[in-house]
Design a protein around this nucleic acid. Structure first.
Lengths: 244, 244
DNA sequence: AATGTAGATCTTGTAAGCAAGTTCGCAATT
DNA sequence: AATTGCGAACTTGCTTACAAGATCTACATT
């Protein structure tokens, strides 16, 4: 049993003492925010976990103030819930929210594909080339990759699709609502939707895009994005208390 | 010259002393956040305005902490920029961001229209009925309304369109990215895109939706949403220093 | 007159402590 | 044994105070 698995068996979310990087231009609260956000998305801090300001402050060797700011930002992200005089808790995964995110993602990514039709040829080919590159990296990783490594490549693939819209803005906006979905993907990757399967999906999408078959690409992309609305059920079976 | 206009002529953003509601369950920081967010969207706190933590704390008769939390949330919304040891400033309006928001909105709202085709008849008719009701309210307000009143009805119209997707989630997600767009709409409403014109647009969209002409409705909605990418230019001419 | 430097005065970041509400356990009482 | 009540130990919200960097002004120097 590795360290993170061990943590997940504990009732309270505990951390090793962590020394924040004081030399870098990043503030303490910002570093704490990034750290906690990652721990929530990779489910080290699983749904329902209590995040105590005092405890976190002690672990990071800072006062409560920077921790409070980090928690405020996490609440804004919809990842935690702060109840006055009770505590701060990692939110449970909301299935309606998951479906909503799928809808928003497929709406935006498919429309980005549609915009690609208006793109000038050079720009179009540039993105297609980057997609091919990314796909090769996915294959190179193969089954030997960790979930986190593959997730980054998967994100990059979909970011490139969004860039067909002419800018990176659409993808950036998706980040704000994507966190809840990523928490589930972290699990399905190891159980149901393994990398090999996702790579197949990406490959089909890529081929349709490259051959400028918009309708096919759009349909495949939509199915690909909505896959999680089926696969989450298996994760839910094993961890019912994590879902809302 | 009314009070708000007066404020807008000043270099620093100043406020009258405001007493926060202590009896209500809402925290001080939350009240300050809501207040400042509205002032930024209605351009009382115009782009470039400095928001001093000390000054705000004095005006609200609280310490810096709740003000800091409010500012942190505003930064997360992309409405202000906090520069350490320099100050917090209302962000300028970004034209690329505006175009990005238009893209995201039209992608989501048009896809919601598409989902309406799968909706069962009763649900469909219920939303159409609400749209008609809303449209009547818009007409009732007429030209005698304030920008803010009309904006609320306009928002409700588009929220109803999003509800064709089966839930309110898509609209809620749009709120996070819509703020920058609303700042411009507040001006164009009084200069270029007057309510009467927008009501005409809404009416045409409504008719297409009601007669289940998906392609027409989608096209009209898209044009309607992208209108601001042309009308903003007039506002920009008069206030170049507010734009990025 | 132009320039450079020191200091006062801004700014946000962080620390430490108090206030008020919730929860949980232990002890006294019935 | 069951229940009730009090208190200790938590929680977050807010206040106050200090730290450190940025900026502007006034004065001295060239």
């Amino acid at each position: 049993m590795d360290y993170f698995s061990f943590l997940m068996t504990m009732k309270k979310f505990t951390l090793p003492d962590l020394i924040l990087n004081t030399n870098v231009g990043e503030s303490a609260s910002s570093q704490i925010y990034s750290f906690l956000r990652e721990r929530i998305i990779d489910n080290t801090a699983f749904p329902g976990t209590q995040l105590s300001e005092n405890e976190l402050a002690a672990h990071f060797h800072v006062s409560r103030q920077p921790v409070r700011e980090a928690l405020t930002r996490l609440r804004q992200d919809g990842l935690i819930e702060i109840i006055p005089q009770k505590g701060s808790f990692v939110k449970k995964i909301s299935v309606p929210n998951l479906i909503g995110v799928c809808f928003v993602r497929s709406a935006i990514e498919c429309n980005a594909l549609y915009e690609s039709l208006r793109l000038e040829d050079a720009s179009f080919k540039e993105i297609v080339f980057k997609l091919a590159e990314n796909l090769n990296q996915q294959k190179a990783l193969g089954e030997h990759s960790t979930s986190l490594e593959f997730l980054h490549l998967d994100d990059e693939f979909h970011r490139l699709i969004c860039s067909f819209s002419g800018s990176n803005l659409a993808w950036e906006m998706l980040q704000g609502v994507k966190a809840n979905m990523d928490r589930i993907r972290f699990f399905t990757l190891e159980n149901v939707s393994k990398p090999a399967h996702l790579i197949q999906g990406h490959e089909k999408i890529y081929e349709s895009v490259a051959s400028r078959d918009y309708f096919m690409a759009c349909g495949l992309l939509r199915s690909h994005l909505y896959e999680i609305t089926h696969t989450y059920k298996q994760v839910m079976e094993e961890n019912k208390e994590w879902f809302l």
